[in-house]
């Protein structure tokens, strides 16, 4: 990966590299894409922005990168306001948009060099060579972009975003329609960049991706950031499962012998719901079933369910309203 420009200005671990406050966006159609978003991205982290389609992920990224005008609110990137000091802010940012949009007749090397110039950097053939090699594009350097496969074009877009040695990299749905090999290459590259001090913000609607890559996860739904959490903590929440037992005889209340378990009665005492953590060393299912048997509680059926990302969204949104 390109050597990152070494700035030694001391910066505390808590000072955000991107700071979004009170950001709203209402499109001309009247659609409110963002409703007062506040978000801090820490320097050097991999931040995954999760959310269903139409949640506002791309709008948020587009505003930070200068593609969409904000309605109200401010964004600071690398310490610079994205509107009043857009040159300095944008020079620090690299963007790989979701849509596969490239020139057709340019060569790979020319288009990457073009990007570097556009972002105000002097020509540096050695650096462009390194970026192309890192993305396995060096063999294709003199090919016209239109002759490349979809996966190769995606690599070209990443190379363009890295050509000016950005300190912040946005990857909007980087793995949409991408094969396994490129996905692996991409995650390797993201880790290398992070090791070089680059802050990476990626959007996805796959929880597995966030799980694999991110340090922190933000969940956006209907234009609002409804949760920002360390990945480990979020995984614990997402990792919860429920075991529902249909009882032969309804219970009026939980017997004291079962008070140590995370139990709840449902549907008028006909069902017993046990919530447990799949990531824990012990789920406690065996002991629960033993305790139930000892307490003489019989059940006619059982089922387990796992809270999906969609469920988490729904419950989070419901909790807020």
């Amino acid at each position: 990966m390109p050597p990152m420009s070494q700035t030694t200005t001391p910066q505390t671990a808590t000072s955000p590299i991107i700071s979004v406050s009170g950001l709203t966006k209402t499109y001309a159609s009247g659609f409110q894409a963002l409703k007062s978003v506040d978000l801090d991205i820490r320097k050097g982290e991999i931040f995954a922005l999760l959310g269903p389609n139409g949640a506002g992920k791309t709008t948020l990224i587009s505003i930070i990168c200068g593609l969409v005008n904000p309605t109200t609110g401010t964004v600071r990137a690398d310490g610079h306001d994205i509107v009043t000091d857009y040159r300095a802010a944008r020079a620090a940012i690299g963007l790989v948009p979701q849509e596969l949009t490239t020139d057709a007749f340019e060569t790979v090397r020319a288009t990457v060099g073009f990007s570097r110039g556009l972002f105000g950097k002097r020509k540096d053939p050695a650096l462009v060579e390194q970026v192309l090699k890192d993305l396995s594009l060096w063999d294709k350097r003199d090919s016209q972009i239109r002759t490349l496969s979809g996966g190769m074009k995606r690599r070209v877009m990443i190379a363009k975003a890295l050509a000016h040695e950005p300190r912040i990299l946005f990857l909007d749905e980087p793995t949409a329609g991408v094969d396994v090999e490129l996905r692996q290459d991409m995650w390797q590259m993201v880790r290398r960049l992070r090791d070089n001090g680059v802050t990476i913000i990626l959007t996805t609607h796959y929880i597995e991706e966030a799980e694999e890559m991110a340090d922190r996860v933000g969940v956006i739904s209907k234009g609002e950031i409804i949760l920002v959490e360390d990945k480990v903590e979020l995984m614990r929440k997402l990792g919860r499962k429920q075991l529902t037992l249909s009882l032969q005889a309804p219970l009026a209340e939980l017997p004291p012998a079962l008070s140590t378990f995370d139990l709840a009665l449902a549907t008028g005492g006909e069902e017993l719901v046990y919530t447990y953590d799949t990531k824990a060393e012990r789920t406690g299912i065996t002991t629960l079933l033993q305790a139930l048997s000892e307490a003489g509680i019989r059940f006619s059926d059982l089922r387990t369910s796992q809270s999906s990302l969609e469920d988490i969204f729904v419950s989070l949104v419901r909790d807020r309203s």
Binding site: C65, G66, L67, A89, A91, L95, S115, L118, G120, K160
Partner: peptide, 9 residues
């Protein structure tokens, strides 16, 4: 998109 996201006046 690249032109709009670039630090150009």
């Amino acid at each position: 998109y690249e032109l709009l996201s670039a630090p150009v006046a």
